[in-house]
């Protein structure tokens, strides 16, 4: 009595989610590379690539709705399907953050560069690592790896606050650079949000695997 049809549908859903994860990782990585190299052309690529991420998000939503309606899944199947739906929404927002960053790069690449900020680079590498790990934890059903991602979020928050303070101080001294510094503050904020969305995905992965809701907001 194996439910081969459902297995196939779940397999397809998993593939779509992994494809979306991979495209989102690529978008974030390209956006950050374009920022580091002040490459407006590469930033444009990120903007173009977002269409495919959005299309996959819609396709996943459609599959989720269809499987729920036709198969009435329960237990780990139900958790998986709901989890993938949530994960797709978070990946789509990460894609949007990559676009936000790329848009700033397009503006900033036409203006003189501000001094290199190692904190910004650290934050970029940190959230990229978070994204890689949360998608990896989904791929390998690894709840421990997902939990590590949740623990990484506070570092992203700290780095974002440090960057904010750095550029506020910088703007006091360099009033001509205010606009560029504001864009950099927004970029850091985008990265911090990516960290939050990776945490959401990791929490979802734990829910899919263990059926436990570890979100702080859901605790009494």
């Amino acid at each position: 009595m194996e439910r081969l049809h459902l297995e196939k549908e779940l397999g397809n859903l998993r593939l779509k989610a992994l494809e979306m994860g991979s495209l989102t990782e690529k978008a974030l990585s390209q956006a950050l590379k374009s920022a580091l190299e002040r490459d407006g052309g590469l930033a444009e690529t990120v903007l173009d690539g977002d269409t495919e991420i959005n299309r996959l998000h819609c396709a996943i939503d459609e599959s989720v709705l269809s499987i729920l309606a036709r198969e009435q899944p329960v237990a780990r199947d139900l958790r998986f399907i709901l989890g993938v739906g949530q994960m797709a929404a978070n990946l789509e927002r990460i894609g949007d953050q990559a676009v936000n960053i790329a848009e700033r790069v397009i503006l900033l690449s036409q203006r003189p560069a501000l001094p290199h900020n190692p904190l910004m680079e650290e934050l970029a590498l940190h959230v990229q690592d978070m994204l890689r790990r949360c998608v990896g934890s989904f791929n390998s059903d690894d709840a421990d790896m997902a939990l590590q991602v949740c623990d990484m979020d506070s570092r992203a928050d700290t780095l974002n606050m440090k960057i904010l303070k750095h550029y506020v101080d910088f703007m006091i001294q360099e009033s001509r650079a205010v606009e560029r510094a504001v864009h950099l503050i927004i970029m850091a904020r985008c990265l911090e949000r990516v960290g939050d969305q990776c945490t959401n995905i990791a929490e979802n992965v734990i829910f899919m695997i263990k059926g436990v809701d570890i979100r702080q907001t859901c605790r009494p």
Binding site: M1, E2, R3, L6, P73, V74, A75, R76, D77
Partner: peptide, 11 residues
């Protein structure tokens, strides 16, 4: 066993 039964993956 419960999970396998209710998700239709029995035996």
């Amino acid at each position: 066993q419960t999970e396998d039964y209710i998700t239709g993956r029995f035996g």
